[in-house]
Design a protein around this nucleic acid. Structure first.
Length: 105
DNA sequence: TATTTGACCAAGA
DNA sequence: ATCTTGGCCAAAT
């Protein structure tokens, strides 16, 4: 049998992130919130440990203010991928984040 | 077990 | 609008 908590916090983050479709983004805070947690910093840690790129679309996770946050393969790559999905990036941030934000609930 | 580390966030001396 | 600060929490050390 599996251990008592068969999913780590990081694994839960990856699961929830898989729901975010191409052309949409989410934020570190929103993922934490979806997990009924305030551990938004820990969400960033989980992304940095990098599951399989691009199976788990961690390039779609940005900061609450629309700035891009980080990316294991470099922020410029993250920006390009988002643009390729049709997301408007201006001055290193998602413009009109509210329009591109995916809602979990 | 205790401390340190981060792809964060909100408020504002 | 930008920068600093204190707080946040899971994982790694």
């Amino acid at each position: 049998m599996s251990s008592m908590s068969n999913k780590t916090f990081a694994e839960k983050c990856y699961s929830i992130l898989l729901k975010v479709p191409e052309g949409k983004v989410t934020t570190y805070k929103d993922i934490a919130h979806a997990l009924d947690s305030k551990a938004y910093r820990a969400v960033g840690m989980a992304m940095s440990k990098n599951p399989n790129i691009p199976t788990v679309p961690c390039h779609r996770v940005v900061c609450s203010d629309g700035s891009l946050g980080g990316y294991a393969l470099g922020v410029p790559r993250k920006a390009q991928m988002l643009k390729d999905e049709g997301i408007d990036i201006r001055s290193g941030a998602v413009s009109d984040l509210d329009n591109f934000r995916y809602r979990f609930t």
